[in-house]
């Protein structure tokens, strides 16, 4: 189905997430790269040897979660915008999720915006807790949202209503 709709199945998504214990320890990258394409900037960008592709640049990146610091540099470098950072260490009831967001208007810290799943459905409202857009990100801003824990595996996007 994925190849017909662009929507990965729950199993595919779960296969990319590290254990909940790891997520509860602190921020970690989730790379939703499901198909081999000739591409390796995530590996090149990672300073912690947490992303491995190897000699053949078509190989799907493998994340070594224990090496990952959640620094999010890979997130801004991925041409497919396929990476997010999840962090379950801050609260028992919520998680922090960092996503790339290349649209205007950018949300502001403190805003409440719509949280969308992988089909673009509005599943919950989320709070914006961080917006980073330095020059080094090269016009791929990173937005950090705080969402209810139960949306950890489903939340993938946001929608900001233009005022």
């Amino acid at each position: 189905m994925f190849e017909k709709t662009g929507i990965p199945s729950k199993e595919m998504v779960m296969g990319k997430f590290p254990s909940i214990e790891r997520i509860n320890k602190g921020p970690v990258a989730v790379i939703e790269c499901y198909k081999e394409i000739p591409c390796n900037p995530c590996e090149t960008a990672c300073k912690f040897d947490a992303i491995n592709i190897g000699e053949d640049i078509n190989t799907i990146p493998a994340v070594t979660s224990d090496n990952c610091t959640g620094c999010a540099i890979c997130l801004t470098k991925c041409p497919g915008l396929a990476i997010m950072i999840v962090d379950g260490s801050k609260s028992e009831t919520t998680v922090l999720i960092k996503i790339p967001y290349e649209f205007l208007p950018l949300p502001k810290v403190g805003d409440t915006v719509m949280g969308l799943d992988r089909e673009g459905r509005h599943i919950t409202d989320v709070k914006i807790v961080g917006v980073l857009n330095p020059k080094s990100f090269d016009r791929t801003p990173i937005v950090t949202v705080e969402a209810g824990r139960k949306y950890l595996y489903d939340l993938r996007n946001i929608k900001v209503e233009a005022k």
Binding site: E32, G80, G120
Partner: peptide, 16 residues
């Protein structure tokens, strides 16, 4: 099937 790279497809699909 979608002909383009699936990362591009997913990125648009999650915009609804």
């Amino acid at each position: 099937k979608i002909g383009g790279y699936l990362v591009h497809a997913s990125k648009i699909r999650r915009m609804g």
